[in-house]
Design a protein around this nucleic acid. Structure first.
Lengths: 336, 336
DNA sequence: ATTTTTTTCGGAAACGTTTCCGAATTTGCC
DNA sequence: GGCAAATTCGGAAACGTTTCCGAAAAAAAT
């Protein structure tokens, strides 16, 4: 006699199980009075509808898969929190997987999730994603997918994006208006859309002020990348006056190497990061960075996906672009 | 005609569905020949057993819940990877939730997971856990739970732990044998067992060398905690010669403040962290720290839980203690 | 008062498996 | 060749819901 089922509740009240079911999913016809009566005794008996039976009956898993490249900083974890918040509210579970920056692991993750019959997917691509064809295939098979932040143009699906162009431009402007001239951009992983947009923002900021566009150095998103690039700059004696980095991690890596080599931040080199990480407030100097609305990203991605799931088939892929904020800290302010 | 079910396979071969089922779960009596035949045509038809139907029929969700306080550094994410690896291999899903350092959120997470009928739980407590009674209740209700790393003595359950005592002792010894005298310990959150063990290691290392035990300062696990404590030390002019920190985050926070105030690491203050984070290699100076076997922790926790689930009831709570490594880097070596 | 409409509910099929029980077939044994 | 045992399989119940369909009851309309 472990679990009490819908039958127990029905028997107790001399009603049918369909009535009890209706009481719990109040979309069907049932008298308010009996509904309350059922819910009351259900509570007394400690009855909780079995979600698995519901899934089988409804032919939906009420489970959605979320795939992210990593959890190394707090960006993705916060997005997860936002997504889970709206999913749970809609009675859905989230199956979260990390692809560890490998497109092969990413693909395997998608496959296990699909085998587990998820109703849909929320995905942020690894940098080196070579799964475009695979994803377009899934979309053609009517598997609902929403991508966020890290995505590529080639995939036709709903997306929740950050306005990388605008905020890259703002970040660069912030350096320009302070009079910095020799500004270099540490470029992120090339095939991602956000990399192109940040680069475009960097470029257009220069154009707006009629400056020759600063140097662009391929870098990447990891600390090691920033360290490597900074070391190369030093070796080649090509250290710029200011840096707009691909993200906070690479910025922190670069700062570390510069400081080790006797450069002072921001006196010798000013630097701004991107995608505010938990590090920004705790580096020396504190790091100027663009803050993304992490929770909001997760929430809208989840909402978009649920919408898409509920409109079975006839929906148009949407792209929602969210806004952020430039947090100005010590690493970029000019010392006079 | 979307999904092909077990019936389609059965009809195609003129066998019963029970035979097909047996072919897929080869524990029952079935002729090798027919089994192969079934698996072959099942593959041809693209049949995949519906996991939800299996769950309902077997009265198991094949889902386990994992609750961690956060994902801010790479410790917990790596543990997740290890756990998911063995869970997937056993056909189980993982529902991962963050409790954001709040015991209320933690409790709510447990509740939603239990409502989702997880077969068991893997939990690492928030620092301020006040849910001891609640957990002991769950355990009495025969819900399998395995705790890892962050746990408390009051809970009677299987645990996967790190040998905090031993490695705290090693870390402290590493400072002592280099001749540092005035060593302070930044203590973690008090009610966790690991905090007590690390403190004991710190103390016993001193005793072993017949030194008076260094000062112990309540600190915490976050960067802010390390920053705050370092600032207090400076304000009170109680800056020690060496520090054994509760973890890497607090160490990094402390280093940041010390450096900002003109102290040199390790020349003025030597420091070692704990629970190697992704930061350790990238700070200036690089941070000496104790590395934990993250993947292994996840794997053994998952294995322990699955074992407990399969032995329904009659099992004895085990505590498995794992080993680590001291990674000596620049922050602690004595400059002569 | 009768008919029509609406509301409320019960019966039963369906979702896709697993697994018990027993029957049919094969094998082993004397 | 006959009987017991072992192997292999089919039938059907079970898991706990949702939901369609139709019937009964209540309300509204005539």
């Amino acid at each position: 006699m472990k679990h009490i089922t819908i039958k127990d509740v029905a028997k107790k009240l001399n009603v049918s199980i369909s009535t009890v079911s209706r009481a719990f999913n109040n979309k069907y016809d049932i008298k308010e009075e009996t509904k309350e009566k059922i819910l009351k005794t259900a509570k007394e008996l400690g009855y909780k509808p079995n979600p698995i039976a519901k899934k089988l009956s409804q032919q939906r898993s009420f489970t959605i898969g979320i795939i992210v490249p990593e959890f190394s900083n707090n960006f993705f974890p916060e997005v997860m929190l936002g997504a889970q918040e709206v999913l749970l509210k809609e009675g859905c579970q989230a199956l979260i997987m990390q692809s560890n920056h490998s497109w092969e692991v990413e693909k395997k993750n998608v496959e296990t999730l699909v085998n587990n019959m998820v109703d849909g997917l929320i995905i942020s691509l690894t940098s080196e994603s070579k799964n475009n064809a695979y994803y377009n295939d899934l979309i053609k098979q009517n598997i609902p997918i929403v991508f966020f932040n890290r995505t590529v143009d080639q995939i036709k699906a709903s997306k929740v994006l950050f306005d990388d162009y605008k905020w890259a431009m703002f970040a660069t402007e912030h350096l320009i208006v302070q009079g910095y001239k020799n500004i270099t951009h540490l470029e992120g992983d090339k095939n991602l859309t956000l990399t192109k947009n940040r680069l475009r923002g960097f470029t257009d900021a220069h154009k707006k002020y009629k400056l020759t566009v600063g140097k662009v150095v391929p870098c990447g998103f990891k600390m090691e990348d920033g360290e490597r690039v900074a070391q190369e700059m030093i070796d080649k004696s090509e250290v710029p006056r200011a840096i707009f980095a691909a993200n906070d991690s690479s910025a922190v890596g670069a700062i570390s190497v510069f400081k080790k080599n006797g450069y002072s931040i921001p006196k010798d080199i000013a630097i701004v990061g991107f995608t505010e990480s938990n590090l920004a407030k705790h580096t020396t100097p504190t790091l100027t960075s663009v803050e993304q609305p992490t929770n909001d990203i997760g929430q809208t991605a989840a909402k978009l996906l649920l919408e898409q799931i509920n409109t079975k088939g006839l929906f148009v892929p949407q792209t929602i672009v969210l806004n952020g904020r430039l947090n100005i800290r010590d690493s970029s302010v000019k010392i006079i």
